[in-house]
Design a protein around this nucleic acid. Sequence first.
RNA 1: GGCGGCAUAGCCAAGUGGUAAGGCAGAGCUCUGCAAAAGCUCCACUCCCCGGUUCAAAUCCGGGUGCCGCCUCCA
Length: 472
Amino acid sequence: MTKIQVYNTLSQTKEEFVPREPEKVSIYVCGVTPYSDTHLGHARPSVVWDVIKRFLRMLGYETYHVQNFTDVDDKIIARSLEEGVPALELSKHYIAEYLASMDALGVERADVYPKVSEHMSEIIELVDALVQKEHAYSAGGDVFFHVASFPQYGKLSKQKLEELRQGTRFDVDPSKRDPADFALWKEAKPGEPSWVSPWGEGRPGWHIECSAMSLKYLGAAFDFHGGGNDLIFPHHENEIAQSEAATDKELARYWVHNGMVNFKDAKMSKSIGNVISVKELVKRYPRGLLRFYLLSTHYRSSLEFYDGKLDEMRRGWSRLNDAVLNLESDLPHAVQGELSDLDRETLQTLDRLERDLVAALADDFNTAMAFGFLFDLVREINAYRHKQANQHEVLQKALKILKLYAGDILGVLHLEQGERDGLVDSLLDVLLGLREELRRQKNFTLSDQIRDQLSRLGVTIEDTPQGPRWKV
RNA sequence: GGCGGCAUAGCCAAGUGGUAAGGCAGAGCUCUGCAAAAGCUCCACUCCCCGGUUCAAAUCCGGGUGCCGCCUCCA
């Protein structure tokens, strides 16, 4: 099986990926806190993990992907009080909105989407276990994790406990033993959703849900733990402390963090308010283009968004799609027979490019590099076609590679099979047929008029030696 | 102040020791009724700056400068 290198935040180096169980990959990706519309920043890890999963399965792995919804949280409660909508109703609405946005981006669903509100007993059990093992203590109705009881605290974010104590910029809860301790369980305040626990009515702190739910669905030492790099501290650091203190086993083997999406020189963030919602974006741009944009930079780098960026990227993206259309329209006219030297050379180049493509994706999921090879392939096959060569085997192979990598794995191709409307197809065929007749009669005024008018509707007509063709 | 990261052509962006992928934009040519698509050619002697290591550095080390993220909710 192809060896995969993956950058592990824990070791700060690329490591060879060896799964916990042969051929099975367990994945936990931190999901969203559903209290407002899904934005581009959320779309990035989703699309990145979508591609990683598809690639792993192409290599023969089985994937099991868990992604949580933190549906019990301060922000949700605040929002629910503002709007007078029950907290769980609010989160339910935004969970649906999130899933719809991901569907629109062609992101395959996770295998499980556990919610905090449905895992209270697991969370309480885990907190209790930490109290029993004296890694946590209750103070009034709150329970805190005692960071000093976990000597490895800081191993993910490379923070030193002493620095963290000094860096505290907010008022420290006086009931904490150590300013760096964090809440596992919070005592209920009037009007807030709460659950019964050994420490009284309350609700979970922020990090504990991921520890409890990953343990339940994936067990200890699962393969990939993912999320934005803004989660490294404190969220993932605290998850490690809780989980590993409780189980005495490693939480996750490979920590994979994606870079931020920046807009107007700052991280796209709900609290800053510089967000672009996925809902709006998918109305204005094809999903394939959005994915192309999100994947054209390596997942660990930060990614800039600005008005007009997607329009700028559109041409390059079209080149990829046009290559597929060109091959599809050439294929019916292709010949089968003795291979020429050119055919053989081209087949060899295609083979090499496919190997390069796999190697790029296997090297820390380098999608940006993969696009480089896809464009190389496009140039290669276009040049081949330009030489009037049309061996079926060659065209077929190029098309197959494009559809597999640009289509099935990266998911950037425009219209998948079956997404075109049959009636529209037929109507355009009629219109194009009439226009051909006009062109034969050299009535270019009228034929150009048809082309211009369709162009205004977003339909592009191309006249090729094999006849006219249209695309959206 | 601490921690992590980044700085490559007009723009986007790969490349972590062997002499700068790819895309967009731009220039010229070919094809075309015109256009579109497509092809060919050109477009960074150089990778923020200054030192160092090496036969060899964009890549490693040291020091600057600038930018981003985290240390508070965050993908």
